[in-house]
């Protein structure tokens, strides 16, 4: 196995093309898969030495996060805490301090486990993914990308994420078996626009209830453009239980998750209430 440490995105793409290697970010998924011999890559392309991929910054329209930003970097970023709080919340409970120091948001998408904690918040926030390959760079909604199989064609590099600055309030909650080092059994991210007590557009994303995290159209439809009050919450709960029922069918975990999602949704909404003076 060969090991490369390119210094730029272009170099990484070239090596990927010529070596048929795969990208290595933090390695928290990849190293394990190699140890268990689930994959035996021809070459590894370590993205750790490409400075631009590490950036977290604010531009005119977006919060931009490089694919190599770690969960601890995002979890310590004031910018993310203020403007993408559901993502910030997800960073606090993801893995453990050691895992957060290594694991990246790009790797979270690249591995794309059903329980990936970073994805529901990004979905709820209406994030665009930026990809690059031999054919050039492209930007597309993360929700669309998650609909593709395979997720990425070989040699495609995740450059980063662009979260539109439309001042969405957002929240996140996760159900795990314990507080630290717990893979989500269920996670919910909620983002909404609020005008006084009136809710504008709402986006709700779920994790660990299907093959991949997804945005729920029906929840968005039912919860948007309404008064934000207790009955909104109740409506959301009954609707999200329906979504979980439909997504899980007769899987063994379905009866449990159908009930549990009510509490997780409630918590996600509570976490969002704490911001922006919603809690009166």
């Amino acid at each position: 196995m060969k090991y490369y440490q390119p210094q730029s995105v272009n170099e990484a793409i070239e090596i990927a093309y010529s070596s048929q290697g795969i990208f290595l970010a933090g390695g928290t998924d990849l190293v394990l898969q190699m140890q268990k011999r689930k994959i035996q890559p021809k070459a590894l392309i370590d993205l750790g030495r490409i400075p631009e991929l590490h950036e977290i910054k604010e531009t005119k329209e977006y919060i931009e996060i490089g694919s190599m930003a770690t969960f601890s970097e995002m979890g310590k970023s004031k910018l993310i805490a203020e403007k993408a709080s559901s993502l910030w919340l997800a960073c606090q409970t993801m893995g453990s301090p050691q895992i957060r120091n290594q694991a990246t948001i790009g790797g979270n998408l690249g591995n794309c486990s059903p329980a990936a904690d970073g994805l529901p918040p990004l979905l709820a926030l209406g994030t665009e993914a930026v990809l690059i390959s031999g054919e050039g760079e492209k930007q597309m909604p993360l929700a669309d990308l998650l609909g593709q199989t395979p997720l990425l064609s070989p040699g495609t590099l995740i450059v980063g994420f662009k979260i539109p600055k439309i001042h969405l309030l957002s929240g996140f909650a996760k159900l795990g078996r314990r507080e630290a080092l717990a893979i989500a059994r269920l996670s919910v991210a909620v983002a909404l626009e609020l005008d006084g007590s009136k809710v504008g557009n709402v986006r709700v994303a779920l994790g660990a209830v299907g093959r991949r995290a997804f945005l729920s159209d029906s929840l968005a439809h039912v919860l948007s453009q309404r008064e934000f009050n207790e009955s909104w919450l109740e409506l959301g709960i009954s609707q999200i239980q329906g979504v979980v029922r439909a997504a899980l069918g007769d899987r063994a975990s379905a009866p449990y998750k159908r009930v549990a999602v009510a509490g997780v949704f409630r918590e996600a909404v509570a976490s969002l209430r704490r911001q922006g003076g919603l809690d009166k």
């Binding site: 290595l24 390695g27 928290t28 590894l44 301090p97 050691q98 895992i99 290594q102």
Partner: peptide, 8 residues
């Protein structure tokens, strides 16, 4: 801090 079992 990192877990050295997951760092190449």
């Amino acid at each position: 801090t990192v877990n050295s079992c997951l760092v190449l």
